[in-house]
Computed example of a mutant assay.
Amino acid sequence: MTSDATQLNPASTQPGGPAARAAVVTGASTGIGEATVRALAAEGWRVYAVARRAERLERLAAETGGVPVAADIAEDDDVARLLAVVEDGGGIDTLVNIAGGARGRDWVADAQTDDWEWMLRVNVLGTMKITRAFLPMLRAHGEGTVLNLTSTAGISAYEGGGGYNAAKYAEHGMTQALRLEEAEHNVRVVEVLPGLVKTEEFALRRLGGDAEAAEKVYAGVEKPLTAEDVADVVRYAVSVPHHVNLDEIVIRPVAQAATHKLIRRG
């Protein structure tokens, strides 16, 4: 495991005002996670940026003033180390679970066990482990928030998506259960479910590094969502007054009227 680093923004340690808000954001080394760190930091939040790639986190921290913590959220020891760093830094009121991903487009008949195990480990077990670790802190705060970034793949299945559907349906169900369980503790639970989002790595990783195949995912779609589009929705959802709970937010590009209906031109 790579080492973690910490770099506090001096302004974020000042009491009162917007800078008093603090969040852990997972999946912060790329895509929506990285964009969310930038969006929250720009609003004065103290942000703990979490992912496995330390070098990318350190560059992000240098730009945003966040706190980089290199960690694998599915590893118990890493989660415990992250929790200790956050406790030493004064704690958080918000947990933003963005880490996840897809591998493969095989039909169930040709399913690759390694791909399915990876997707379930990262999307489901990783989200569970880090949420479980931080819930006592969020409860103790009195107005805690958990935001899980899932996917429209968690509410609508498609051919070749069985493994990712399974992982995201499970994460979706876990999020719904969490909302019911934590309401009595005044912890609000938000779910953001994006459709087609064009980021630098999602499709590329899913398709085993095949850049040509990854580009075809977005071919002819005039304006797919960007990481910044989704991050702006995440920022809004965790920034509204705490009594307002945006339970489920589905966000798609206009060109994607449904999972099975995507307008491609040219």
Rank of each mutant, 00 (worst) to 15 (best):
M1C: 13
D4C: 08
Q7E: 13
Q7P: 04
L8Q: 09
T13W: 05
T13A: 13
G16Y: 09
V24Y: 01
V25A: 09
V25R: 00
V25L: 12
G27S: 09
S29C: 13
A39R: 12
Y48A: 02
A51Y: 02
R59M: 14
A70V: 14
D72M: 13
E75G: 07
D78C: 14
D78M: 07
L83V: 11
V85N: 00
E87K: 15
I92A: 04
D93W: 09
T94N: 08
T94F: 03
L95Y: 05
V96E: 06
G100P: 09
R103M: 08
G104T: 02
D110I: 01
T113A: 12
D114L: 07
E117T: 09
W118D: 08
V122C: 03
T127D: 02
M128H: 13
F134Y: 06
M137N: 05
M137R: 11
R139C: 04
A140Q: 10
H141Y: 08
H141E: 07
G142R: 09
E143N: 11
I155D: 06
S156F: 01
E159I: 02
G160V: 07
G160W: 06
A167L: 02
A167K: 01
E171W: 01
E171L: 15
M174S: 08
A177E: 03
R179T: 08
E184V: 15
E184S: 14
H185A: 13
H185L: 14
N186P: 06
V187W: 03
V187M: 11
R188E: 03
V190P: 01
E191C: 12
V192H: 04
T199Q: 07
F202M: 13
A203R: 02
D210N: 15
E215M: 05
G220I: 07
V221S: 11
E222D: 14
P224H: 11
D229Q: 12
V230H: 00
V233T: 07
V234N: 01
Y236V: 11
S239I: 02
S239K: 06
V244S: 08
L246Q: 05
E248K: 09
P253I: 13
T259G: 10
H260T: 10
H260D: 09
L262R: 00
G266Y: 02
